[in-house]
Amino acid sequence: MRQIVLDTETTGLSWEKGNRIVEVGCIELIERRPTGRQFQRYFNPGREMEPGAQEVTGLSLDFLRDKPRFETVLDELLAFIAGAELIIHNASFDVGFLNYELSLAGAHYGRLEDHASVLDTLAMARERYPGQRNSLDALCKRLGVDNGHRKLHGALLDAELLAEVYLGLTAGQGDLGLAPLGEPETASRLPGAVAIPSAPRRVLRASDTELAAHEARLQKISAKAGKCLWPGPAA
């Protein structure tokens, strides 16, 4: 399975108020393993950063002014995520902004969901840890992911942390060992796992004494209940 861990940074909290994406960061996973392929771009939003957004990202319009506009990089981004499962924390936020950007670029782009499926790790975390804080920082602490270097929010940095958090949330969801009889078991998809060859299956058959005892038990049940739903060999 090909998955893309994705995060965005924006000029503010609401695309409905005209806020725009200023950074996209993506990490590629194949069969739950990072491939080393990444996608990261800054964008000129054509508007000022809101004070709160500038504070948490450290980005300013002065820094972003010479960066490309989102629509000029859109085809490259869509090619990178095409057909993948997107892993996003609080997906409704990022998907809302991405769909807004797609709509500004042209109706022919459709919606993000036309290009990739979406998995929300915030929903996963809330199901696993109900009633607890499930922010990215809280999950890093809970799952032992080192985020000490995260002084500011950044799309690529947050995608890297989220990749580790996702693997922690889904630890153990590898191969279930359901290979056909006679074929070697495949290795678990978890990093570091090894394949365990299947051993020959032993077939244990009941002895004559055990069969006679079983038949006597069925007859006793039939005599007491009037009918036995599991007839013996003579039936």
Score class of each variant (00 low, 15 high):
L229N: 11
A235H: 09
L190E: 13
L104V: 06
L98R: 00
R217S: 12
V203P: 00
L98W: 00
E50H: 02
V203H: 04
I81P: 01
G226R: 09
G131A: 06
P130W: 02
T57I: 06
L143P: 03
G96R: 04
N147W: 04
P184D: 11
L122N: 02
G144E: 07
K151T: 12
G18V: 10
F70M: 07
N147C: 12
I27K: 02
R142M: 13
A105P: 02
N99L: 12
N147T: 03
M1P: 11
F97G: 11
F93Q: 14
E55A: 09
V165P: 02
V145H: 03
L143S: 10
T8H: 00
P200G: 15
L162E: 09
L6V: 06
I27A: 00
E160S: 03
V56P: 05
G144K: 08
T11W: 03
D208M: 03
R47F: 05
S198F: 00
A216R: 11
R126I: 10
L74R: 04
Q3F: 03
A206C: 08
G110C: 07
G12E: 11
L64F: 02
E16R: 13
N147G: 02
E50Q: 10
Q219G: 15
C228N: 15
N134R: 12
R37V: 12
I221C: 02
D114F: 02
L64W: 01
A234R: 06
D66K: 13
T186H: 04
A79G: 06
T186Y: 02
A125I: 04
E28I: 12
T72N: 11
G177N: 08
L29C: 07
I4P: 01
E113T: 15
E183C: 13
R33A: 14
C228D: 14
H153Q: 10
E113R: 05
P34A: 13
